[in-house]
Each structure stands twice: as C-alpha cells, then as structure tokens.
Design a binder for these strands. Structure first.
Length: 352
DNA sequence: AAGTCGGGGCA
DNA sequence: TGCCCAGACTT
C-alpha cells in the first residue's frame, strides 16, 4: 500500500505555508532556534520573537558569545526559560566540540541539551533534506486520527507506535517538504477543534473521520486540578524610578531571570528592609493582586510598593540589581514582573 | 511513569 | 474557566 506522501505533497504544493520567518532561509541554525522556540509555544507567539532574536544573535557564534542575561532578555515573555539557557549552552558546546558547525547527525544532535528526537529530526529534515521523522503535536494529531488511535499519545506504547508510523510515512523523496506538509496539515486543516476534513487530502483513508470521531482524537490525558499558591512580592523603590530586582536561581521556576524579592507576608517587609538594605522603609502600599497561571499551579501575587531611602551601601551586583525604569537593563524578566514594572512606569513618568 | 517548566489563544 | 500548543529533561 502506498504512503500518504504523494497526496500530502500535492496538497502542500498548492496550499502549504512557505512564508514563516524560519522558512525563508532554512539553515540548520535558523531551523534549530525556531524549533526550540516552537516547543510548547504556538506559531503566532513565536512569530513575534523570532526575527528579533535572530537580529540579536544572527549566528551560532554570536549566541555562544553572548551573556546569559542578553539571551534571557531576548527570550523574555516566551516562557520555559530553561530552553533559552539550554540553547545557549548547546551553542557553546557546538563551538567547543564541533568547530562551531551544528552536527547534522541524529545522535550528535540529540546529545545536545534541549534537543530531543523530534527537534533533531526537524533540523535534519528541514535544513538538511534528510529522511528523518518528527513527532510534534501536529503530527501526533494527524496520525492518531488517521489510524484511529484512541489511547492518549502519552501512553508509552502509543508513543512508540506513533514514532513507528511517523518513520514509515516519511518519504525518501522531498523529506523537507513532507515535514512541512504534515505540520501544515495539522496546523491548518487537521486542527484540534472543528477539523476541516472536507478539504483534507487524507480524508478518504482517515479512520477517525470514517467513524465520525476525528474531533475527539487525540484522547486527552487525565490531569489533576491545579493547586493554588500565593506570594508577596516587593516593588522596592527609591529616587526617580529605581526598583530592586533579585537574580533567581539558575534552575526551577523563572530560572535565571531577575525577579521581585519575595517575603512571607506584609508583616515581614520592615524586617526585610533592615536586613537587606540596612534602612527602614519610608512608605508601604499594597497593590491589587496579580493572578498568573502555570501548567501545574495558579499563583496569586500580592505586590507591595516599598519606598526606601537612598541606599547607603552597595549590594552584591551578582544577586541584586537596581533596575532603572527609565533606562532598563537588558535582562530577562518574567511576564508578570514586566507588567508590574510597566504599571509602575505609568505612575512615575520620567522627570523632565 | 510522573513531575517540572510559562505564556497565550481560543471556545 | 479549561485545554493545549512545531517537547525535553529529571527523578
């Protein structure tokens, strides 16, 4: 029996997307950056970041040579900041071990941090023209429907079956176009809700469509309710628009970003100022609660505005940063921190 | 095999 | 609101 490639490619040659930023000059480096950005992040979001990131770090060498703060600054708002740090670490390793050239080999690529099998396959297929399968969310959706796979894709046996199918369907002829085509099919026709089966080039052989259950596949993984958490964060301000930021640990939530110092509760603000600044606060004002949702929990942040006198002693520059609202340092900031700093800037416009 | 890691788009 | 997105890594 024939594969799906002929019908898929014929459709893609007419209806496929070729205008995405990373499709224009699909070098291994450009495809790599795009694939890492697209891990768990939607195309419309990545489109807002990609060109700006590539302008800042046009090649692998410039990314390897950059400071971590500069990389996280360019990544701020995209989320999953571990991806940015791994991307840069991988770039540095490529410079050390591979002469600055991305190895176009599955095992060598997968040995780099942040590159799994699917991302490696995408780089090899899209930038190298190699016959390598990928298995991203789009391909999983197409294949589970095509074969009417009713168990959740996360089940290991299902995962293995999907990789087998992905490999089997990937053609030796035009593998790059095929890879784009199956992703485009999933993104534009075989969508999660309301799939456009009437326009699908694979409709005649799709088992889920035959049985009228396309929209129910792939099956959702059962998940637990998200716990609620809360925290009190301080906007420690002095002078004309200085706000104190603290460097977060390299790993974990918002790893490597600069955040607002946290305290146990409102009562702890005074003690905190004495301990860290060496002076008591001049004014304390609570601001409205900010809700921020994560995959695994919801966070309610209570911001507290704390005005302090001009600091008498310098703080450790590796851990603390007096962020200037009117001349912002180019460092990584989490989305809620950016929002808070922006609202503060509205209230405290630059002096004439 | 399950948990961790962000933010946004959409019904 | 709940769900999931061009996944990978750790335990």
């Amino acid at each position: 029996m024939t594969g799906i490639a002929p019908a898929l490619l014929a459709w893609w040659d007419v209806h496929g997307r070729r205008d995405l930023p990373w499709q224009r000059d699909p070098t291994p480096y450009r495809v790599w950056v795009s694939e890492v950005m697209l891990q768990q992040t939607q195309v419309v979001t990545v489109e807002r970041y990609y060109d700006r990131f590539m302008a800042a770090f046009p090649d692998l060498q410039s990314l390897a040579a950059a400071s971590e703060d500069a990389v996280l600054h360019a990544w701020s708002g995209l989320g999953y900041y571990g991806r940015a740090r791994q991307l840069q670490h991988a770039a540095r390793r490529v410079c050390e071990a591979h002469g600055g050239v991305l190895p176009m080999d599955l095992d060598a690529l997968m040995a780099l941090p942040g590159i799994g099998r699917s991302t490696a396959g995408a780089i090899l297929a899209l930038a190298g023209g190699q016959r390598q399968p990928i298995l991203d969310g789009n391909v999983k959706r197409v294949l589970t429907r095509l074969h009417r796979i009713e168990e959740p894709p996360a089940v290991p046996a299902v995962q293995a079956r999907l990789w087998q199918l992905a490999d089997q369907y990937t053609p030796a002829d035009r593998p790059a176009a095929y890879t784009q085509a199956i992703m485009d099919l999933g993104a534009t026709l075989c969508t999660r809700r309301r799939p456009a089966c009437e326009r699908c080039p694979l409709a005649s052989r799709c088992l889920a469509r035959r049985d009228g259950i396309a929209e129910r596949l792939p099956a959702a993984q059962p998940r637990r309710a998200r716990p609620q958490r809360s925290s009190v964060v301080m906007l420690v301000c002095f002078g004309a628009g200085r706000v104190l930021l603290e460097k977060r640990p390299a790993t974990g939530l918002w790893g490597g970003l600069w955040g607002l110092p946290e305290v146990e509760g409102l009562d702890a603000v005074g003690d905190w100022c004495q301990r860290e600044i060496g002076q008591p606060p001049l004014r304390i004002a609570q601001r409205p609660v900010l809700r921020h949702g994560f995959t695994h929990f919801d966070l309610d942040m209570t911001p507290v505005e704390v005005d302090v006198p001009e600091p008498r002693r310098a703080l450790d520059g590796g851990r603390w940063l007096w962020y200037n609202l009117h001349d912002p340092a180019r460092v990584g900031l989490a989305a809620p921190v950016t929002r808070l700093l922006n609202s503060l800037l509205q209230e405290r416009p630059a002096p004439p």
